[in-house]
């Protein structure tokens, strides 16, 4: 593409632009799927923050929940299985003027993509990662996931799961995430708030949403969660206390905490990457024209 070398100001700045809303594609999730609440919460959060839809990029991997970007009128990137985070990081570093949200499921994020999960958090990249955790592989029709509970019978574990599940909250705390929260699809309002605060949080915000699969997971259902969830803020949890956050993260069984586990401020990767100090990379000058002295070192 040929064109002017001057990077134009973002189109539409200062004018009223469409906010984030539904796209012209209707969700294809099963009726009753927990993910409907998550897309609604993402939409609500972005609307409340009045971020124009063209300044938002939602990146996902593969799986039922990873179809989410198609249902929102922002920019989207529906990538390959497990790679939502590195793609989202690349988008973020190319243009850190954008709001970047990564989404996906538990298989995508904690199974095939688990390595990226840990590393994105230790980098404190300023993006929001919303996982739709249904503790099962849905799109591949019901195999065990990394968060399936011990003993759960699935197509791939007909006699029951014999591995311990990953605890995404504890893993996030251990990996240095600076905003760690859990939502539940039975409470869209709380989830929207957690996502909204995650977006405004400077640094890596992780919101693990318990988003029940109504077709393949007959154990961790909406009702199962409703009987167990309680809100951390109402219970007097101090989200600046990492030790308290650790201790709450271990609760899983009769009682399951939701809300903000932990939040802290640390420099982001973008803060520390010196090249980005000159502004979004996509709008910086490119090339070496007039910089021929750079070849002197080869003499």
């Amino acid at each position: 593409m040929a064109g002017s070398s001057t990077a134009a100001a973002p189109a539409g700045v200062g004018t009223l632009l469409p906010l984030v809303g539904k796209s012209d594609t209707k969700p294809t999730w099963c009726p009753g799927c927990g993910d409907y609440s998550v897309v609604a919460a993402v939409e609500m959060a972005l609307k409340k923050l009045k971020i124009p839809s063209h300044e938002v990029v939602i990146v996902s991997g593969i799986g039922c929940s990873s179809n989410l970007p198609h249902f929102v009128n922002s920019y989207g990137f529906h990538g390959i299985h497990g790679r939502a985070l590195p793609i989202a990081e690349g988008v973020r570093w190319a243009n850190h003027g954008l709001t970047v949200i990564a989404t996906g499921g538990d298989g995508d994020g904690f199974g095939i993509g688990c390595g990226h999960f840990v590393h994105a958090m230790r980098r404190n990249v300023d993006l929001t990662y919303v996982t739709m955790n249904n503790q099962i592989y849905g799109l591949t029709t019901g195999q065990a996931s990394p968060t399936s509970m011990m003993g759960q019978k699935t197509k791939s574990t007909p006699t029951g799961v014999i591995e311990n599940p990953i605890d995404p909250i504890a893993l996030a705390l251990a990996s240095g995430a600076t905003y760690v929260a859990r939502g539940f699809s039975g409470d869209v309002k709380q989830m929207a708030e957690l996502i909204q605060n995650g977006i405004t949080h400077k640094g890596f915000a992780f919101v693990d949403t318990m988003s029940p699969c109504v077709t393949y997971n007959k154990i961790n259902t909406f009702d199962w969660f409703r009987q167990r969830v309680y809100k951390l803020d109402a219970a007097g949890h101090d989200p600046t206390d990492i030790v308290a956050a650790w201790s709450r993260s271990l609760e899983w069984g009769d009682k399951i905490p939701t809300g903000l586990f932990y939040r802290t401020e640390k420099p982001t990767y973008e803060d520390l990457e010196e090249v980005l100090a000159a502004g979004p990379l996509a709008r910086q000058p490119a090339g070496l024209s007039g910089r021929e002295s750079i070849l002197d070192e080869f003499l």
């Binding site: 990146v59 990137f77 990538g79 790679r83 590195p86 793609i87 973020r92 570093w93 190319a94």
Partner: peptide
């Protein structure tokens, strides 16, 4: 895996 996906993300993002 991350390297190429980051590069793809950055390209999508405009560089």
């Amino acid at each position: 895996l991350a390297a190429i996906n980051m590069a793809i993300g950055a390209s999508f993002g405009g560089v």
